[in-house]
Design a protein around this nucleic acid. Structure first.
Lengths: 341, 341
DNA sequence: AACATAAATCCAAACGTTTGTATTGACTGC
DNA sequence: GCAGTCAATACAAACGTTTGGATTTATGTT
C-alpha cells in the first residue's frame, strides 16, 4: 500500500516549491515551459492526482453534482433514472466533476436532504425530479443560490432551467386512444396530488374527455406502484362493466393487468388499458400494452447537457433566460386500449 | 443568500475557541456540560452543519461510499441497481456518509475509474457489481487496501466480503423447467464470457442438461440487451424447429419474444423460453414468462448491511473471515417454458 | 496561605490545495 | 554602471475542521 503522492512529494523530488508545481500542472504561463514539462512528466510517472477534499476546501466547491432520487424508488422506478445517472456521470467526469446520489425515504425527508447538501457543501449543483406544486426543495435552493435543474416544471420556471415531459399531452393521448372504443367508464389512475406531472396528466386527460364529449372520467390518485394500481383497479372491476383505464405509468397498468387476471377478466373483451412511459416488457403483455414513450436516452442526454451548461454559467441566468425544454411523448398504439373479442 | 456558518461563527458568537466548540458538538467530556449545552443550542439555532470538505481533508476520509455502475446500464439494467442505491444511501446517511456513483462507459474504463477513486480520495469504500474472472478493479483495490464489497464472486474471495446470487443454480432451474417438455434444441443465452455470473449460469445449465440426459445445449454469449437477445433468437428460429431458450436475464427473454413475433411464431406452440431476474412486466407477457427471481429489496438490504459492517471494521478482516452470502434464486413457473398448443 | 491537582478552555499545527504577493537574479537601455 | 523591467520561482495565507499539548482557572488539601 503505497503512500499517497501529493504536491509535496513532487516538489521535494524536484527541488521546487509546491506552488510552482501546482501551477506547472495547470499550465500556468508563470512557470517556465521547460519546468512545466519536467513537472508534468514526473507527475504522470508518479500517477499524481490532486486530492479532491483539499481542492474542495480550498476552492469552496465540492466538485460534485447531486441527483436526488425521490421515493418511492422501488422495483418500479422509471428506468430513466439509471440512464440519467449513467449519462450524467459520464458528462461530469469529462469536466472533472463527480456524481453524488441521495435517496429520500419519503417525501418529508427530501427538503431536509437538500438543506444538508447545501449546508455541508456536498454538491455544487443538483438535479431534482418529481417536482411538486410549491416545492420546498426548489424554494430552498433558490433561496441559497445553488444551481439546479429540475426534471419537471415548478412554480418558478423563470428562475431555473428545467426539462419537462408534457404529461398533459400524455393524458390527452391516452384518452384519445381509449375513446376509440370507450366513451364512458373511463378511469384515470394517476400519482398523488401535488406532483406536477401527475396533475398535468389528469388535467390533459379530463380536458380531452370534455373535448371529445365523453362522460366525465373517474379519477384516482394513488402511489405509483403495481400494487396500488392493482387494488385501485380491483375496486373498479368489481363494480363496473367494461371500464377503460388511463394510467400515468406502466407500473399502474401492470397492476390493472394483475387485477384483471385475479378477477378472471381479460384485457380486450372486458376492459381496456392505456399505460405510460413504456417500461421494459410492456410490449409483450397480452394484449400488448398501449402506452406512450419518450426516448429515455435522449432525455437523459438533454438533462445532462442542460446541467452542464448551467454549471458552466456558474448558475447565472443567461441573457435570454434559463433553458426550458418540453418533451412531447409519442403514442405507442398496441392492443390494450381497444375493446375487442 | 446567507453567509455560511462555520465553527468560527459560533465560536465568536459565544466568545469561545473553535476547538472548544468543535469538542462541545461532539460531546467531548473535556468540555463542561453546561458549555456543551449552550454551544449545541446555538448550533441548532444557526442550523450549523460541519463542512464536508474540511472534515474529509482533516480526517483523511472522504465520507463517501461509491457504487460502480457497470456498462451496459441502459434501459434494461437490472432494476436491483436503483433499489441498491436507494437502500445503501439510506443506511449510509445514518452514519454520516454519502453515496457517490460512477458509471463507466465501457469495460475498459472501469479500472481507470477505480484508480481515480482511490488516488483522488473520492471514496472510503466501494461496491462493485458484474465481477469478472481476474477482475482488474478488484486487484487494484486489494493492492491499495481500500475496503470494498462485491456483488458477485471473484478469484479472491478470502480477501474481501461479497454477496452473490447463485447463478449456477439459476441455470439448473431453467434447464430443469424447460426439460419438462423439451429434451433437445435447448439454447442458452448468457452474457459475455468472463463475467462470473454469466459463466456460472452456463456451467449450471450445462451440468443440469447432462444430469437429465438431454442433448448438449447450444450456447450463445451475447450482450445483455433486448436487441442482442432478439437477433440471437432470430437466427435460431430461422433454422430450428421448436427451440427452447434459457436466458440469463429477462431482457434477453423479451428479445426472444420479439424475435418470435417477427417470425410469426408463438411462444408455447412453437418455442419455449425461460428468463431470469423477474423484470417488471415479465408476469404479463403472453404467455407469462417463467423466470427466477431474488428479492431485490432484501438483496439490496443485505449488500448494504455487509458494506456497513465492513466499513465499521475499517476494512479489516474479522477473526472468522470476511462475510460471504450466497443467495438462492427461486423459480417462478409461469407458462412460457412449456410447449403446448 | 501556599501548593498540588483537576477541570475547563485556548493555542497551534495539520490535512493538500490554490493563489496573492514577495523575492531573487538576469537582462535592458541609457 | 545603475535604475528599471521582466522572468522565474519561493513564501505565506487561506479554506474549516480536528486534535495533541499548553495554559489558565477553579477546587481541594495541608
Amino acid at each position: 500500500m503505497r503512500k499517497r503522492v501529493g504536491l509535496k512529494t513532487l516538489a521535494e523530488e524536484l527541488g521546487l516549491d509546491v506552488s510552482t508545481v501546482s501551477r506547472a500542472l495547470r499550465d500556468d504561463p508563470r512557470v517556465k515551459p521547460a519546468t512545466r514539462r519536467t513537472v508534468q512528466t514526473l507527475a504522470t510517472r508518479y500517477d499524481y492526482r490532486p486530492n479532491a477534499a483539499a481542492r474542495a476546501l480550498r476552492g469552496g466547491k465540492s466538485g460534485r453534482v447531486a441527483v436526488l432520487l425521490s421515493p418511492p424508488q422501488q422495483r418500479f422506478a422509471s428506468p430513466i433514472f439509471l440512464e440519467l445517472l449513467s449519462t450524467l456521470d459520464q458528462h461530469l467526469r469529462e469536466i472533472g466533476l463527480n456524481l453524488a446520489v441521495f435517496a429520500a425515504r419519503d417525501r418529508d425527508e427530501e427538503a431536509g436532504i437538500v438543506r444538508q447538501i447545501i449546508d455541508e457543501g456536498l454538491a455544487d449543483g443538483l438535479v431534482l425530479g418529481r417536482t411538486r406544486k410549491d416545492d420546498a426543495r426548489v424554494k430552498l435552493l433558490l433561496d441559497r443560490g445553488v444551481p439546479f435543474v429540475t426534471f419537471g416544471t415548478t412554480d418558478w420556471t423563470d428562475l431555473h432551467p428545467s426539462v419537462e415531459i408534457d404529461y398533459a399531452e400524455a393524458g390527452r393521448l391516452a384518452i384519445r386512444a381509449l375513446a376509440e372504443t370507450a366513451s364512458r367508464n373511463i378511469h384515470i389512475l394517476s400519482a398523488p396530488e401535488g406532483l406536477n406531472f401527475a396533475d398535468n396528466y389528469v388535467r390533459g386527460a379530463v380536458a380531452e374527455a370534455a373535448v371529445l364529449g365523453l362522460a366525465d372520467p373517474h379519477i384516482q390518485r394513488i402511489e405509483m406502484t403495481e400494487d396500488a394500481g392493482k387494488s385501485a383497479a380491483s375496486g373498479v372491476l368489481a363494480s363496473t362493466r367494461q371500464p377503460a383505464f388511463a394510467c400515468v405509468q406502466d407500473s399502474l397498468a401492470f397492476g390493472v393487468f394483475r387485477a384483471a387476471a385475479d378477477a378472471g377478466l381479460r384485457v380486450g373483451p372486458d376492459l381496456t388499458v392505456f399505460g405510460g412511459q413504456n417500461f421494459p416488457g410492456s410490449e409483450h403483455t397480452a394484449p400488448p400494452l398501449s402506452t406512450f414513450s419518450t426516448e429515455d436516452a435522449s432525455v437523459a442526454e438533454l438533462l445532462s447537457q442542460v446541467m452542464m451548461r448551467h454549471l458552466e454559467a456558474g448558475g447565472a441566468r443567461p441573457p435570454d433566460g434559463f433553458e426550458h425544454h418540453e418533451i412531447k411523448p409519442t403514442q405507442l398504439l398496441r392492443q390494450s386500449h381497444i375493446f375487442q373479442s
